[in-house]
Write a protein that binds this DNA or RNA. Structure first.
Lengths: 254, 254
DNA sequence: GTAGTCCGATTGTCCGGACATTCGGATTGA
DNA sequence: TCAATCCGAATGTCCGGACAATCGGACTAC
């Protein structure tokens, strides 16, 4: 009985457009990622050696390697010296990005709505001043929002921003997420420090979220930095655990 | 009045050992990382252009770029075309790894202790079977542990492992973390899917953790995969929010 | 003075090649 | 039969060079 080939080397029709301004390695990595996404490249299948792949596409090996490496970094491929490069056995989706709750809900088809409760300038408390790196009692923007999904309150978001960074329009805040506003204002987000915990709801918190006093709440604090190292946002959020949990995938750094 | 140079190009004494089996780019990236860690390379300072750095070290530019790129991926450096490469303005520590609670506590100097409550083989429930990708009612290892810090219970950990993967010695489980055991058994961890939430403690949970019934608990579910895509571990954990919260740093993918 | 333009500096992309290292199977030997 | 050895295959590392794209400051023109 002939044994079926378990991990065949897949032949794809790949091509690159040298007249395009898009980098060649990026064109290739996108095509490979699409092939994996659509199941053309099945989990476990080998990708064929780099040399031949480069020759087939008329590219150099470094370029092909750069394309493959970007997918390895995303967790979609695994390289094994002496063996080859193969597609990871699925399960991998998104390796945890610095995403906004708004975008997450929208992607999940939850039709998020936002109610801006407060949008003003206040003197910075000691906590906020320390997080944002501004002087205490200096001006900071304060935004309080209630995030709803299907008309039900899901989270209470309280955010602080350093002054002069961004015009915070209440109308815009109700139709999109804070991160998207910041990015479109030319701020390049770089990293964030997060802390996720839980605690019992105070009376005021319970009131806001439609829970009862003492009910468990999921809490998140976050400070976000841009690529110059400035803190550009500090926020304390509380979530209804029956409506929301943090789901993410993370990769092991090799 | 002479204006002090805010972001000077720093001169370091770097060197590489060509007789070492350690890759040159790795030697360089380690030295740069150490210089950043120790404050020799101050936040905001420029790194000097790649060409000259390569010439100074007797390396080629691709090698230097590979070293720099690895630090950019770690979030320690930022590159700007036409400007140069500069050290990120601090704040960056660890970009969230797939770490074990045991190692985290140990690194924080908390002297963690583990009490193994259950270490046995059981038939897989539907939930466990789905997570691990084994047949329902098939054998799986079940480990229940209580993790303590300073003698106080901090978390209750319930884990399932597919059969035949690992010898689970109760003594070893009490002196180290599960991940370390798996790694030393030759399993290369690749990624994990996590879900963090909160809920009120049941009577049994409260009893185990020394809380009262209805107290808020922080919960985490995780399925871990190796680089072949096999699920190698599934666990449901509950934490006392007064004793533990998830703290991590995450990077924005450029 | 202010706006637009030019230009040097620096990183980004890409090439073609060379050798080293590791894996896994096939061969060989006990 | 089983273990040790060899060998092909594939990725890992490294080189030296070339040109493109972009940033920021200096210069120029109005």
């Amino acid at each position: 009985m002939p044994k079926p080939d378990a991990d065949p080397t897949v032949q794809l029709d790949l091509s690159v457009d040298r007249s395009s301004p898009v980098p060649l390695y990026f064109q290739l990595s996108q095509q490979l990622e699409a092939a994996i996404e659509q199941g053309v490249l099945t989990p476990g299948s080998l990708l064929g050696n780099e040399i031949e792949l480069a020759a087939r596409l008329g590219l150099s090996r470094p370029t092909v390697r750069q394309a493959i490496q970007s997918l390895v970094d995303k967790g979609l491929l695994v390289r094994r010296r002496g063996v080859g490069t193969q597609v990871v056995h699925s399960q991998v989706k998104r390796p945890l990005e610095l995403s906004s709750l708004y975008d997450d809900l929208e992607a999940a088809g939850q039709r998020p709505a936002t109610k801006v409760l407060v949008n003003t300038v206040v003197p910075a408390s000691a906590e906020v001043a320390a997080a944002l790196g501004v002087t205490e009692d200096g001006d900071v923007h304060r935004v309080e929002r209630l995030r709803l999904a299907h008309g039900e309150p899901m989270a209470y978001l309280c955010n602080y921003l350093p002054p002069g960074l961004l015009d915070l329009d209440t109308g815009q805040l109700e139709t999109t997420g804070l991160y998207r506003l910041m990015r479109s204002a030319g701020i390049t987000l770089h990293s964030a420090r997060q802390s996720i915990g839980a605690r019992a709801a105070t009376a005021a918190e319970a009131e806001r979220l439609g829970e009862t006093e003492g009910a468990p709440l999921l809490t998140m604090q976050r400070t976000t930095f841009d690529d110059t190292g400035r803190a550009v946002e500090y926020g304390t959020h509380t979530y209804r655990p029956s409506r929301y949990s943090f789901e993410f995938q993370l990769l092991v750094r090799p």
